[in-house]
Nucleic acid binder design. Structure first.
Lengths: 119, 119
DNA sequence: CTAATATTCAACCAAATGGTTGTATATGAC
DNA sequence: GTCATATACAACCATTTGGTTGAATATTAG
């Protein structure tokens, strides 16, 4: 994916994942494309509620809706999930860089102290 | 980390990440522990607002607050970020499993067709 | 053409959210 | 001991969210 994600894009992405129903919809559509009606059978809420969740996922780019006659098939967009995962990996990188910085300082310190001790 | 995350834990985790200010706080505290006052200098909002964001991150387990005299140092919890990343990796795995299933079916289909053609 | 099915969206409601202001408490500096 | 600084939290407000109900539209089946 060529385009960078804006802060709003990322807001939507993680917001879409911040709900158990939406995560379940994502799981199911990762396994197989499904219509909204088929999806809604799996949840104890109104059709409109499931429809809203699908819309949130679509706005976040995590799924797309493809028309098949009167049905819309909800199709997962794995590339977007990978994108979210990459964002999190970057936060982890920040930590590793910080840890690496600390080790470098300690290594320098040990060298100085080693020299001092050999006196 | 030994404990599994509940759906509510995961809700909080991704909800905490669904805001640009909180993601920035996470970035900064990944690089260095900081007091809330120090953090709040970087945002154009009231101290209480930043305080609230830090609380959301803490409730999600992404940071901890460690007391240093009158200050609280906000410390990132990289293990939690890794956890969120692992959750996303699992969704990606679902897709790969699906793709692998499709390839297996196609391979079997090709074998049958190959045999038929050799007649 | 009509009926059934699938989907979209508006309007509504209660709860949650993000930000502000102000008060209270705890700790450190002097 | 007082003052300054740092933090926590309540109360408030506007907006957003998650769910419901109902009406409208599009497509398929008969």
């Amino acid at each position: 994916m060529a385009d960078a994600l804006t802060d709003d894009d990322v807001d939507r992405l993680f917001h879409a994942l911040a709900d158990a129903t939406r995560r379940d919809i994502l799981s199911r559509t990762m396994r197989a494309d499904q219509s909204i009606t088929a999806l809604s059978r799996g949840y104890d809420m109104s059709f409109a509620a499931v429809q809203k969740h699908v819309t949130v996922l679509a706005d976040a780019g995590l799924v797309s809706k493809e028309r098949r006659g009167r049905e819309r098939l909800v199709r997962a967009v794995p590339a977007r999930v990978r994108r979210a995962r990459e964002l999190l990996s970057r936060y982890e990188s920040l930590w590793r860089e910080r840890a690496a910085g600390i080790e470098a300082i300690l290594a320098a310190d040990d060298s100085v102290r080693g020299t001092a001790r050999s006196t």
